[in-house]
Computed example of a mutant assay.
Amino acid sequence: MNVPATKAQRVRAVLDILEHAELGARELTAHLGLPPSKLRSVQRDLEDLQLTGEIERVGSGRYRRPARASTLNPVEALAVYSATRMLHHHAAGYNEHYLSALQKLTAQLPGTARHVAEQANAAYRQRRGGQGGAQAEGSSASRTFELVARAWLEGRVLRFEYHSPTRVSTVELIIYFIELNPQNRQAYAIGVNRLRDGDVPFVFRLARIRDAQLLTDTCEIPSSFDPLEFLSGAWGIMTGEPTRVELFFSPAVRDRVRETPLGPQADVAPLASGHTRVVLTVGGWKELVPWILGWGGEVEVIAPAGLRSHVAQAHAQGAQLYRQTELT
């Protein structure tokens, strides 16, 4: 949020905030990024706005803007609020856009639920007070997310430095879609890097984007691009050649396997022995590894051979680590 420079900007910002949250003068001053010396000015703003009926006092020195007609029914508001909560869980630090969305949706929840949701929002707001590197990282993440969203919604090219695990490269991205990985809850931009030959979309993790700049160049999303088709073979977000994966789960986790969403294309077969045979077709198996390892010794990889070898090696390394620990 930009720090308001004039009284008019400050009053407008106060109204925007109090439409979606109940705050006191000190909290508002900090939320606006104003120095403590501006506390009295904010208090006068609140007094004036209360006199004109634009805000109301709700006790304990807190204020709010009277609720207006909701555009969502309670179930719709809860569904969207829950989705936004999942979005904010992916961020290691504070993201002002996530909080703003949560506050707007909270205002549309029924009374008791709204009170509980406001407490959750307040806990998330505390991340804003992070110090040093954590605060700077949160601000940078908010800025990146804002620019990525604007590039997609405004049809503009986004230029940035992309820090992959192996190298740093310059990207000028035409964004086709923005998606959250259901496995690691990270946000990704899907699109074409116009600095590379070809028109095949690639996937870019937002957390690895640095020095993003929104260019004036405009672009279009091809009408032939279908995000669901593009991601249809992905276990999380990464795509690739279709790979058949066969897993054999022990009887001890039969119910857990049945309750786990494996996608519409999964072939899940409970066996008379109590074991469960699962066959998946995914675009490459690397994203599956953390999930498979999370089952420990309750699952055996049957195929492909490369995945079976990788998981076996990871278990062997873990066992060796614990053997060394027990000896020391």
Rank of each mutant, 00 (worst) to 15 (best):
M1R: 08
N2Y: 13
V3L: 08
V3K: 07
T6M: 15
K7W: 13
A8T: 13
R10H: 07
D16A: 15
I17S: 13
E19G: 15
E19I: 02
A21E: 04
E22M: 14
R26S: 13
L28T: 04
L28D: 02
L32R: 04
G33K: 06
L34K: 04
P35H: 03
L39V: 01
R40N: 11
R40D: 13
Q43M: 11
D48L: 10
L51W: 04
L51R: 09
E54Q: 14
E56S: 03
V58S: 02
V58K: 01
G59L: 02
Y63N: 00
R64A: 00
R65Y: 00
R65G: 00
P66F: 12
A67S: 12
T71I: 08
T71A: 13
N73P: 06
Y81L: 02
A83R: 12
R85A: 09
L87I: 05
L87P: 01
H89W: 09
A91M: 11
A91D: 08
Y98P: 05
Y98W: 15
L99E: 09
Q103D: 10
Q103W: 12
L105D: 02
L109N: 03
T112G: 10
R114I: 01
H115M: 13
Q119F: 11
A120V: 15
N121W: 03
A123Y: 11
Y124H: 01
R125Q: 14
Q126D: 11
G129W: 12
G130K: 07
Q131I: 14
G132N: 14
E137A: 14
S139E: 07
A141M: 12
S142H: 07
S142A: 15
R143S: 05
R143T: 08
E146R: 03
L147A: 06
V148C: 13
E154V: 10
G155W: 01
R156A: 10
L158H: 03
R159T: 02
R159Q: 09
F160E: 02
E161V: 15
H163N: 04
S164K: 07
P165A: 03
V168D: 10
T170E: 05
T170G: 03
L173G: 04
I174Y: 03
R185S: 14
Q186W: 12
Q186L: 11
Y188R: 07
Y188V: 05
N193E: 06
R196V: 08
D199G: 15
P201R: 08
F202L: 14
F204Q: 10
R205V: 13
R205Y: 10
L214W: 05
L214N: 10
L215H: 13
D217K: 11
C219M: 12
E229S: 05
L231S: 01
L231V: 06
S232P: 03
P242G: 01
T243Y: 02
V245H: 00
V245D: 02
L247N: 05
F249R: 11
S250C: 15
E259N: 13
T260I: 00
P261V: 05
P261R: 00
L262G: 09
G263D: 00
P264R: 13
Q265N: 11
V268Y: 08
L271V: 04
S273I: 05
T276Q: 00
V279L: 01
V279Y: 05
L280D: 01
K286R: 10
E287Y: 05
G297W: 13
I302M: 10
R308A: 15
H310W: 04
V311E: 00
V311C: 06
A312G: 13
Q313T: 13
A314F: 01
R323V: 14
Q324E: 15
L327G: 11
T328K: 09
T328F: 12
